[in-house]
């Protein structure tokens, strides 16, 4: 069984905590789906102490916390945010995001590798949000990352796996590395597909949080990742162009 820096996860679903209609619905989505990892962030604390209320909600979920560096555009900013997150959330895990492009939120992979190296030297366990580029992946592994999180599609786009060919190549290239599809999932079928391809987990947020019924969608996503995982392990058949009768021909009655 693959682990995430030595930690086994109960299932292949990681959920974000943003954009839910209310904290109660957020809690319901986690409880009903059983997702084992929650991504969180750090923002400026207001006078009302809203961060402290959120912290209570997160603690009560009883799941593994994965703080992110969302919105960071420079190595310095991401490293400082990670250092602050480690203290606040009490974990060495960090989802490292280095945003390179405003519209697509595509990772700046050059800065990503640099920041990953710095953070790993400081004892962090880095989950890099990256693209499907194999050379970047090699550099991230070389920097000490033990998990890779390639995007399926741009964050929040809900487009599914837009470059399945490259993702399949990535899976084949790094069979031992835990690979998590992070971002772009819109439907349970997308999540199931990621797992059918052999990915180890799926991280999503918007598809659940912005659904009409987030808790039901969270359950649907869990069903999808578990089905996809089981299917991958069951060694699916290859698609073919022509029909192949499944009912035996031998012994068929001659009735015409």
């Amino acid at each position: 069984m693959k682990t995430y820096y030595g930690t086994e996860l109960p299932n292949p679903l990681m959920l974000g905590t943003a954009q839910y209609p209310s904290p109660a619905i957020l809690e319901q989505a986690f409880r009903e789906s059983g997702a084992g990892v929650a991504t969180v962030s750090l923002r400026r604390e207001g006078a009302g102490g809203t961060g402290q209320t959120f912290w209570q909600v997160i603690q009560e979920l009883g799941v593994q916390i994965l703080p992110n560096t969302a919105g960071c555009h420079t190595v310095k900013e991401a490293v400082t945010t990670a250092q602050m997150a480690r203290e606040v959330f009490g974990t060495r895990w960090v989802k490292l995001e280095l945003i390179g492009h405003t519209d697509s939120l595509q990772p700046d992979v050059f800065q990503l590798v640099e920041a990953a190296r710095i953070l790993i030297d400081e004892g962090f366990e880095v989950f890099p949000y990256t693209t499907e580029d194999l050379i970047v992946a090699e550099h991230l592994l070389g920097a000490g990352c033990e998990v890779l999180m390639p995007w399926g599609a741009p964050i929040g786009s809900g487009r599914g796996l837009t470059n399945e060919y490259a993702l399949r190549a990535m899976r084949a290239e790094f069979p031992e590395v835990p690979l998590v599809i992070d971002a772009g999932i819109g439907l349970p079928s997308h999540a199931a597909r990621a797992m059918e391809l052999g990915f180890d987990a799926v991280l999503l947020n918007t598809a659940v949080a912005r659904a009409g019924d987030p808790a039901a969608m969270a359950r649907a996503m869990m069903g999808a990742v578990e089905a996809g995982k089981l299917a991958h392990e069951a060694d699916p058949i290859e698609a073919r162009d022509m029909a192949e009768a499944s009912t035996p021909v031998i012994g068929k009655a001659f009735l015409s």
Partner: peptide, 25 residues
Amino acid sequence: AASLREQHRLNAGDRVEILAPMQGG
């Protein structure tokens, strides 16, 4: 770090950030 706040002296013009847990994806 929290453990260094007591000895960290402030100077005029300093930019201080105070962050707390928040929802994230």
